[in-house]
């Protein structure tokens, strides 16, 4: 069975060990973490994580149940099961020769990225978008040399009025 991409949102208690419990579950049960983003939310007792993994349909069901079982996990949702929005941020430091500057400025505009820092030999570019767009931009760079690349990993949120609530699904 071919592995599919899944994007999972989690609300977790902002306590020590929460991140380690989740990361530990993935390594202990043989799942991969493609990307993982963690940050505080408007509720300071809760952190939100967005996690991207590749696995089979059967494995994702088991993974969701295992995540839900962790005592620190307040709520968990597979965003792939509904319409959702995804964004990822990319910071890129490029070595940029004089004769490449024009071209790079043009590419940055086409992809609606921004140049946020310049030296006489480098450009630093910021870009947000879905992962595919970031990858397309990276491909378009051609000969231009990447000095450093930083990606946030995907962030996700449901479309419309749907939301990931603090009360656990069906367990109110």
């Amino acid at each position: 069975m071919k592995d599919k991409r899944y994007i999972i949102s989690l609300l977790v208690e902002n306590e020590f060990g929460s991140l380690s419990r989740i990361a530990g579950l993935f390594s202990a049960r043989g799942y991969n973490i493609h990307s993982l983003n963690v940050a505080p939310t408007n509720d300071e007792s809760i952190s939100r994580m967005t996690l991207v993994t590749f696995c089979s349909d059967q494995k994702i069901n088991q993974l969701m149940k295992q995540l839900d079982k962790l005592v620190d996990v307040v709520n968990v949702k597979d965003l792939t099961q509904e319409t959702h929005l995804e964004r990822e941020m990319l910071l890129l430091k490029l070595r940029c020769k004089k004769n490449q500057r024009e071209e790079l400025k043009r590419l940055t505009d086409i992809f609606r990225a921004r140049i946020i820092d310049v030296t006489d030999t480098t450009y630093t570019i910021e870009m947000t978008g879905v992962t595919d767009k970031l990858l397309a931009f990276l491909t378009s760079l051609g000969e231009i040399n990447i000095i450093e690349m930083v990606r946030s990993g995907s962030l996700g949120i449901s479309r419309g009025v749907e939301s990931l609530e603090v009360n656990k699904r069906g367990k109110k």
Binding site: V12, E13, V71, V73, V74, V166, N167, K168, G170, K171
Partner: peptide, 8 residues
């Protein structure tokens, strides 16, 4: 009340 722990 443990909000993140509610066994069915």
């Amino acid at each position: 009340n443990i909000r993140s722990y509610k066994p069915q």
